[in-house]
Design a protein around this nucleic acid. Structure first.
Length: 433
RNA sequence: GUGGGCGUAGCUCAGCUGGUUAGAGCGCCGCGCUGUGGCCGCGGAGGUCACGGGUUCAAGUCCCGCCGUCCACCCCA
């Protein structure tokens, strides 16, 4: 490897996921896939890159993500594309393009790209899974979307996640609120933090979730979005809150919750884990976006969805329980075949057992028995099958319990033709033990 | 985009105010045990000290640059 002029490595802010942890990824995505299906969602796959307009019009050209974090590039035909920075805009673009019947319930899992300085729980390529529902304003759909996320976290074993909800109102009542807010910020401009004293007018809503004491003081004394909601928006919010309570999903209202994308209307929510410290404690979030389809050139169509970062989920899982996380990563097979006759027997046994649905591995290259058993140990298998000249001669297989602590019942010989049956029985026994 | 810490074996790290052949633990391979893993003992392989310059008789150690990484701000998943 010293032949190469320089070592090639994964780009800054990106990571390879190798088999020592990828099993956890499989399980997280597998669980979500199963649950999404149970909730009535269908998988939607869209390209990782889109016309840059999809994201500019979608998440808002003024948003930080669109302004300075997108991977924008020109292809050989001179088209301007961007790597997807989040999941929603593409799904809504697909909805607008294909006119499916509504309500349209889509789930997705996708990489997302943002050009940021990497940090704990923040990467240039991260992965999100989530859902979107297009074509209904029913507040119980908001509840269903939030509940799916909540039950998913629950099923993963996350215990330290809490749900924060808020409403941004629709275009009109939010507009009225922003006007009030502007007036308030203007009169208190000198009391804001250094940064926002100058920049508040660009995006007044940003000031609301500023963490500096100065801004907090001004915001606390100012207008609240809760009071600015029109009657229908207030009712919608109340229905969402009630729907959550009906099914026992605990929530907390925070009128300071303002999310980064401009497309949100009415319901917004975020799931934060107190097991994650620092600013990267959000494991998921989302909201309603009743204008988005229209912004992307479609008919006015209401929508709501959530996205969750897989890396953040894994980080939270590990922070809550290192043991639990390791279990999630475990990629043990059931059986390991040790062959001292040259390899043909292992070849045949593996095929037979795998066809019976058993997870089997073996060693190669005719290694020593000691070395093969060592590999068996490392494979995490509960059972080893041993076949050598002695077994071959009498048509038998030695079946060894790799978990047994006493020498007595550690291993026994069985007839070659009963292998599958015996293995399945032994696995069943060790499962019950 | 701004600011800090850190780059030594596959991994985690030690290496004093520069001073001969660069260390440990884990992991890996082998042997003790020629057909029996985990535990133990012994041995072995594996490093142009991220990279490029500079200072010096002498640089892993000091200086500059560069790349990477971690962390904070910002923002978000």
């Amino acid at each position: 490897m010293s032949e190469q002029p320089q070592q090639l490595v994964a780009p800054i802010g990106t990571h390879d996921v190798l088999p020592d942890t990828s099993r956890a990824w499989e399980r997280v995505v597998g669980l979500f896939s199963t649950m999404a299906h149970q909730w009535g969602f269908g998988l939607v796959l869209t390209p990782v890159f889109e016309d840059v307009a999809v994201f500019n019009r979608g998440i808002g050209e003024k948003s930080d993500v669109a302004r300075k974090e997108m991977y924008v590039f020109e292809d050989r035909g001179g088209r301007t594309y961007a790597l997807r920075p989040e999941g929603t805009a593409s799904v809504v673009r697909a909805f607008v393009q294909h006119h499916p019947t509504t309500p349209w319930k889509a789930w997705y899992v996708t990489p997302a790209f943002r050009y940021e300085r990497p940090q704990a729980g923040r990467y240039r390529q991260h992965h999100q899974l989530g859902v979107e529902v297009l074509g209904t304003e029913d507040p119980l759909v908001d509840v269903e979307v939030i509940a799916l996320a909540w039950r998913f976290y629950e099923a993963l074993g996350l215990k330290r996640v809490s749900l924060i909800i808020n409403s941004m109102g629709h275009a009109e009542c939010r507009g009225a609120f922003v006007t009030q807010l502007r007036t308030h910020l203007e009169t208190n401009e000198t009391s804001l933090c250094d940064e926002h004293a100058k920049l508040w007018s660009n995006n007044p809503l940003r000031v609301i979730d500023c963490k500096k004491d100065e801004c907090r003081g001004v915001i606390d004394a100012g207008p609240s979005i809760a009071d600015a909601l029109c009657e229908p928006c207030a009712e919608h919010f109340a229905a969402v809150a009630e729907g959550l309570t009906d099914i026992g999903v605990p929530w907390e209202r925070n009128t300071r919750l303002v999310r980064g994308f401009d497309y949100y209307t009415r319901t917004t929510f975020e799931f934060v884990s107190d097991a994650l410290d620092g600013a990267q404690n959000a494991v998921g979030g989302g909201g309603r976006y009743d204008q988005l389809a229209q912004d992307l050139g479609g008919d006015p169509t209401a929508g709501v969805g959530f996205g969750s970062g897989i890396e953040r989920l894994l980080l939270a899982l590990e922070a809550e329980s290192v043991e639990g996380y390791q279990t999630l990563c475990d990629s043990s097979v059931d059986v390991f075949v040790v062959d001292m006759t040259g390899g043909l027997q292992a070849h045949l046994l593996c095929d037979e057992l795998r066809r019976a649905g058993v997870a089997v591995d073996r060693a190669y290259d005719g290694r020593s028995m000691k070395s093969q058993l060592k590999a068996a140990d490392r494979s995490g298998a509960t059972v080893a099958l041993l076949v050598g000249p002695q077994e071959l001669e009498v048509g038998a297989i030695t079946i060894r319990d790799l978990r047994a602590t006493s020498d007595g019942d550690r291993q026994r010989q069985i007839a070659r033709q009963n292998v599958v049956e015996e293995v399945l029985r032994t696995m069943e026994m060790s499962k019950n033990a």
